[in-house]
């Protein structure tokens, strides 16, 4: 049963990847079905920019911001779970919890006056919002490591740094990946909205469609963004499950 589900998942993912690749590389292939939605005389396929370039720019924005968020959130998360940073832990929890009530769109809106239009406000918003889920899950993951395990490692003569690297981080990894997954999915969505402030990405297609009242663009862009998010989510979900499996030492 579980095996059949796994196989089904791989087949579904394969079809999705193939479909997404065709949409990105040969957008014309979908001209006929989309043409039904465009009004008379309107183009059915977005042609003001290459879909591949928009996709790569979108992914680039998300990766740059999310990796920076991962590094910083991990560093702070590790710090507040060490004895030296323990005094900041209750507040860090409160900030991570309430910070996530701040809507990503508001984060973007606040970043614009600070950095101007273009890719920069989007990067700032993606980074700032991306920190929170990773940070929260880093704390949850590290705090979830059984104290007996840490004690046993210390008894074996391991230093604090080695315990962190060889025991705590590997055990917390699935939870940290889960946080990264949430963070990156939110980032893909926020980067789409970032097109309203001039970030280059797939959101451009949707925005252009909304402005020109061209449903074909809206659908093309919507499907592209949705598939990108779903595919990335599937991929990270796979990594998360792998990390959860006990390693055969």
């Amino acid at each position: 049963m579980a095996q059949r589900r796994g196989l089904l998942r791989i087949v579904a993912a394969g079809i999705a990847v193939a479909l997404f690749s065709i949409m990105v590389l040969v957008p014309r292939a979908f001209e006929r079905p989309l043409a039904a939605l465009a009004k008379f005389g309107q183009p059915a396929i977005y042609d003001r920019d290459s879909i591949l370039a928009l996709t790569l720019s979108h992914i680039g924005l998300v990766i740059a911001a999310s990796l920076a968020a991962l590094v910083i959130a991990l560093a702070i998360g590790i710090f507040v779970t060490r004895p030296a940073g323990a005094q900041y832990l209750p507040l860090a929890r409160a900030v991570a919890n309430l910070g996530q009530t701040f809507p990503p769109i508001a984060m973007l809106a606040v970043a614009v006056p600070l950095t101007g239009f273009g890719a920069r406000p989007t990067l700032v918003a993606l980074f700032a919002y991306g920190l929170l889920p990773i940070f929260e899950n880093t704390i949850a993951g590290l705090k979830g490591v059984s104290p007996q395990v840490v004690e046993a490692a210390r008894g074996m003569g391991m230093t604090g740094r080695r315990i962190l690297r060889e025991i705590e981080l590997p055990l917390a990894l699935p939870v940290i990946i889960a946080g990264f997954r949430v963070s990156i999915i939110v980032s893909i969505g926020t980067a789409t909205i970032g097109s309203t402030v001039g970030a280059r990405g797939l959101g451009e297609i949707i925005i252009a469609g909304l402005q020109a009242d061209n449903l074909a663009y809206v659908l093309q862009g919507g499907v592209l963004v949705a598939m990108l998010a779903i595919l990335v989510d599937l991929g990270l979900g796979f990594l998360e499950r792998r990390a959860r499996q006990p390693r055969s030492a």
Binding site: G189, I193, I206, L210, A226, A229
Partner: peptide, 11 residues
């Protein structure tokens, strides 16, 4: 839940 908001509104 994974589908980004603008895309969902568009769809």
């Amino acid at each position: 839940q994974t589908v980004p908001s603008i895309a969902m509104f568009g769809l």
